Simulated scan of single mutants.
Amino acid sequence: MPSLTVPAPVVAPPSAIKASQCRPGTLAGELRISLLRTARRVRMERSSSEITDAQYSVLHALANLGPLTPGVLADREHVQPPSMTRTVAALVEAGLAARSEHPTDRRQVLVTITTAGEQEVRETKRRRDAWLAKRLADLTLAERATLAEATEILRRIATA
């Protein structure tokens, strides 16, 4: 019995990029808007609507870096210490972080992520990756290859 073949989907060729779109000033504006919109959409994918983006960012830092003082967290997150105090208090109240005594400076406290906080970070990462993977699966192989190249370029830009 002959096998049935499914025809490949017809994909429109990418639109021609004009030289004017490649000028650094023009490209900077368009790329910035696209990156911000994409980042905003990805951030919407999280495991809980109970915590804010700022609180999630602190949890993510604690998950990756381990226990930190509120002062270090404030510096990392570019916020004032009173704002970080409120953020930490909310995370502690939600059971996602805990405060403990600093081992060498009794005037300080350390903030650590709890098991529930680690689960929050893992689930949010899973949801974000799943959302993006679903969108990437709808692209052609050539488009995904272009994005793979762009990822490396963006990484270089971000670390320059």
Score class of each variant (00 low, 15 high):
1 M>D: 04
2 P>H: 05
2 P>I: 05
2 P>K: 05
3 S>Q: 13
3 S>K: 14
3 S>Y: 11
4 L>G: 12
5 T>R: 11
5 T>N: 09
6 V>N: 13
7 P>N: 09
7 P>G: 08
8 A>Q: 15
9 P>E: 12
10 V>M: 10
10 V>L: 13
10 V>C: 06
12 A>L: 11
13 P>A: 07
14 P>I: 08
14 P>Q: 01
18 K>M: 12
20 S>D: 14
20 S>M: 12
21 Q>A: 14
22 C>K: 14
22 C>G: 07
22 C>M: 15
22 C>F: 11
23 R>E: 13
23 R>Y: 03
23 R>T: 11
24 P>T: 01
26 T>I: 07
27 L>G: 04
27 L>R: 10
28 A>Y: 06
30 E>K: 13
30 E>C: 10
32 R>I: 00
33 I>Y: 14
34 S>P: 11
34 S>N: 15
35 L>N: 08
38 T>Y: 14
39 A>Y: 11
39 A>C: 09
40 R>L: 13
41 R>D: 13
42 V>N: 07
45 E>C: 07
45 E>I: 00
47 S>L: 10
48 S>Q: 04
49 S>G: 15
50 E>A: 14
51 I>N: 01
53 D>T: 12
54 A>Y: 06
56 Y>T: 05
58 V>K: 00
59 L>I: 10
59 L>E: 03
59 L>V: 08
60 H>P: 05
61 A>Q: 08
62 L>I: 02
66 G>W: 00
66 G>C: 00
67 P>F: 00
70 P>C: 01
70 P>S: 06
71 G>S: 09
72 V>T: 06
72 V>W: 02
74 A>C: 00
75 D>R: 09
77 E>C: 08
80 Q>M: 09
81 P>G: 06
83 S>V: 11
83 S>Y: 07
84 M>D: 02
85 T>F: 06
88 V>T: 06
89 A>N: 14
90 A>C: 05
92 V>Y: 07
93 E>L: 03
93 E>K: 10
94 A>R: 10
95 G>N: 04
97 A>S: 10
98 A>N: 03
98 A>R: 08
99 R>L: 08
99 R>T: 04
100 S>R: 08
100 S>Q: 04
101 E>K: 13
101 E>I: 15
102 H>P: 05
103 P>S: 03
104 T>M: 13
104 T>G: 11
106 R>T: 14
106 R>P: 09
109 V>Y: 06
110 L>Y: 03
110 L>G: 01
112 T>P: 01
112 T>N: 08
115 T>F: 05
118 E>Q: 15
120 E>C: 12
120 E>P: 03
121 V>W: 04
122 R>F: 06
122 R>G: 02
123 E>A: 10
124 T>F: 12
124 T>W: 10
125 K>F: 15
126 R>W: 12
126 R>H: 13
129 D>C: 07
129 D>T: 11
130 A>I: 01
131 W>A: 06
131 W>N: 00
131 W>I: 00
133 A>S: 11
133 A>K: 08
137 A>D: 08
138 D>T: 07
138 D>E: 14
139 L>M: 05
141 L>R: 07
142 A>V: 09
143 E>N: 03
144 R>D: 00
146 T>K: 12
147 L>N: 01
150 A>P: 04
150 A>F: 04
153 I>Q: 10
153 I>T: 14
154 L>D: 08
155 R>H: 10
160 A>L: 09
